[in-house]
Design a protein around this nucleic acid. Sequence first.
DNA 1: CTGCGGTCCTGAAGGC
DNA 2: TGCCTTCAGGACCGCA
Length: 280
Amino acid sequence: MPELPEVETIRLKLKPLVIGKKIKEINILVPKQFIGQKGLIINKTITDIQRSGKLFNIVFNNQQFLNIHLKLTGQLLFAKNINHPVYKNEIPLAKSKIMPGRTTRIIIYFSDGSGLFFNDLRKFGWMKISNIPERPQGIDVLSPNFTFQYFTSLTNSTNKSIKLLLMDQEKIAGIGNIYANDSLFLAKIHPQRPAKTLTAKEINNLYLGIKKIINQGIKDQGSSGADEAFILPDGKKGNHQKHFLVYQKEDQPCPNCKALIKRLKQGGRSSFYCPKCQNL
DNA sequence: CTGCGGTCCTGAAGGC
DNA sequence: TGCCTTCAGGACCGCA
């Protein structure tokens, strides 16, 4: 689900809440979503939370890592008192898909009585214990290594469509369907353009567009779509969905020229674009 | 290399 | 009411 801005928002919120906490127990409700030996981090203390692309690395004081991918619908929710009756199944609140309850897959208990719910409606996400911080191969959009030169070398070296290149985590880490669509709109580039055909000016516009839209997403504390799949560790929503440019705007007027936004499929995903503003 | 469709899952929404 | 199709912030795999 979440892309870089959502994952980063969760990281920033969660970090001060869980640094210094010691793991008391981990309750794994869906075994396929937890990989590795939980015993390796029981009684160990969290020293940091890092992020690379869409992956979290929770760092422990014994050189172990809890690596987490939320995929489409994963959530990490912090509870001050995780044994509070409100979190038990029979309370009406627990029926909501956005609160701990129906979609909870893993529960982490800390030694001070607080804890963490890993909710995931579609069960695609995972947690993995490892002695290394798992990271995507591509360069993170917020990394100083994500330079204009690097981005130019990527676009010039492939015949792939630019949209699929932006979403290729082995090349660029962190961009998903929302921010790919809106970056291309900002740069006035059609999603089906072969990457190699971009002009130097277009590459520059797109590079700046990516940075602008990703940073805007972080400022807005991420995007919470209509289905409310994304929420912060405290249960609150992000605001970036109010600022979507073309994403999920099929048949609505382009913010620039009022032409109707169109939709097409690429790699099984929807691409949204303005047929007038974005050059093929 | 590139793209496409199926796969892992669950649920909401819309057409008939 | 019910049934069927499509769609959803991701990513992998095998096949053309």
